[in-house]
């Protein structure tokens, strides 16, 4: 691929630039909003947004404590790092849960829900730990729904797909006749 752009004609270059200006017809405004807010949330650096943490007395302190070792790294990094501390994922999950409760917009609720399940998925896939009381059947359904969302970024799709497979196996182990 390297160098190939320089042999292109003006129409080809223009067509490629237009790809960057397109909004997919299948994408709704809501999809775009969710994708945009989620991307920003995943790129935001840890510890978590202090202004949010300040409004969450129940978890105040814990985000900074558990996530102190990840200072300056992004939320996406934490979710995708197999060497991350599972306690940090628990903190992220709790943070997301509080965010869902306190959310006043549908987009924020959706994004917080994604973070919540992403933390659970990361713990399952990368640490082999279940950090929620939800049973595997419930989790499998939730991961399946999430995996089909068009706005879910690819790295989270892979994580969620992996968690879903683990849940399927656990359900089979628990109910061999299924």
């Amino acid at each position: 691929m390297k160098g190939s752009m320089f042999g292109l004609g003006r129409n080809q270059l223009a067509d490629l630039l237009r790809v960057g200006l397109e909004h997919e017809a299948s994408e709704t405004d809501r999809d775009r909003s969710v994708a945009s807010v989620l991307e920003a949330k995943l790129a935001s650096t840890l510890p978590l947004d202090i202004s949010v943490a300040d409004s969450l007395p129940a978890v105040l302190g814990r985000p900074c404590d558990a996530l102190a070792g990840y200072r300056g790294r992004s939320t996406a990094d934490l979710l995708l790092d197999p060497r991350a501390d599972a306690d940090a994922l628990v903190t992220l999950k709790d943070y997301a849960k509080e965010l869902v409760k306190r959310s006043r917009s549908e987009v924020t609720t959706t994004v917080a829900t994604v973070l919540y399940y992403a933390a659970i998925a990361s713990a399952l896939v990368l640490h082999d730990i279940k950090i929620t009381d939800h049973d595997y059947r419930q989790l499998e359904r939730s991961f399946a729904e999430l995996a089909d969302e068009p706005w879910l970024p690819g790295h989270l799709q892979a994580l969620v797909a992996g968690a879903r497979r683990i849940c399927e196996m656990k359900v089979r182990d628990e109910c061999p006749g299924r």
């Binding site: 390297k2 320089f6 270059l13 690819g154 892979a158």
Partner: peptide
Amino acid sequence: NFNWAAALLEEVVEEVKHQCRTFHEQVH
């Protein structure tokens, strides 16, 4: 300007390809 556009698009395509590889999205 032609070559500017080409250089810009080359950077973009390489970066997108790099991200897909990083996130194990080769099929994407």
